[in-house]
Structures are given as C-alpha cells and as structure tokens.
C-alpha cells in the first residue's frame, strides 16, 4: 500500500472502531427487559387505526355470531 493508503486505513479504524463499539453497546443496552415485538404494542404506534386490531375485530365477530345463533 502507498503511504497515503496506510494513513487512511489507520485513520478510518481509529475513528470507526470506537463508533461501532459504542453503537453496539447502545443497541444491546436498549433492549427492554422482556422483549415484545414493537408492532404488537399499540402504545408504541399511537396513530394506528384501532379498528385494524385483529384481536378486537375477531372478538366482535365472535360476539355477533354468538347472538345470532342464540335460539
């Protein structure tokens, strides 16, 4: 390698190594104690349409069926 390339390599790694390690540690410590998929948590997405909640829709449908089937 040329002298300039060697210097670039050294500079890049002296800069990059602490940044990668810092971000890696930040990402690992940011993990919640008990992990749940972020998309499953309605509080994490306040703009979401509550009607789109598959659980709520299924429950309502089930109730309706139950009412109709009642003799």
């Amino acid at each position: 390698m040329t002298r300039a390339q060697r210097r670039w390599h050294a500079a890049i790694w002296l800069l990059l190594a602490p940044v990668i390690l810092y971000l890696l540690i930040a990402a690992l410590t940011a993990r919640p104690a008990v992990w749940a998929p972020p998309s499953m948590d309605p509080a994490a997405d306040p703009g979401a349409d509550p009607g789109a909640d598959p659980g709520a829709g299924a429950a309502a449908h089930e109730t309706a069926d139950h009412v109709e089937d009642r003799p």
Binding site: I12, L16, I20, L23, L24, A27, L28, R31, W35
Partner: peptide, 24 residues
Amino acid sequence: HMVVYLAYALLVLHVALGILQTQR
C-alpha cells in the same frame, strides 16, 4: 473498496438492532 468498512459498521448495527433484539 475501502467503503467496505462502512458496510461492516452498518452490518454490525443491522445485527445488533435486528436479531440481537429478539435473540437474547
């Protein structure tokens, strides 16, 4: 080709913020 170092940094984060968030 030295941009591969940037790719490596991105991949460490890809792994840390991806699979390492679910696989504890």
